[in-house]
Amino acid sequence: MLERKYLAEKYAQEIQAILEKYPSDRRQSAVMPLLYLAQRDKMYVSREDILEIGEILGITSTEVASLIGFYTLYYDQPKGVYRIQVCVDLPCALRGAEKFLTELCDRLGIQPGETTPDGLIAIEPVMCLAACDKAPMFQVQSGAGLTYHENQTVENALSLIEQLRRDAAGRRVAGHERGRDANG
């Protein structure tokens, strides 16, 4: 039996609020918001998180894990603190998104799908993000959520990446001072 109560203790109030959205006999509905919660700190869901979410909801860890495989915004492996997801679907491609992706990756010295050597920035081509009139565009996914960046040039994408690196450095210092183990 699992004794871990990491999520339950750290996010007690939020978990309560999530569970209240759904009928009390339909707790499984809360699995998707709980996976986002588990992913907040480290941008992936660990094996321990999967087991704990299963415990909270009364479902098997296999059921929890299968969702991570099915839905593209959940991850079971660490890969980049920030995932920069460039839409290269048809409407965006008609407006230069593929060239944008290639140039951005060239400037960072990585291939699409790879992470920068500092482990912070992953660049990924993704499917349609519902911003077809404002391509090139991408979203930045981090544990804190998702933000849209539209009508982009390689230059302003690079300056955003610099900002993200500064944010990450700031957070590392703050996290260290609190003596927190981000891996739970």
Binding site: Q28, S29, V31, M32, Y36, L67, F70, L73
Partner: peptide, 22 residues
Amino acid sequence: HLGAGAYICGEESAMLESLEGK
């Protein structure tokens, strides 16, 4: 309720399954 990156969930019965946590 937030989905998590699956086009198929726009299909109404898939959406209901997803909302049920499946």
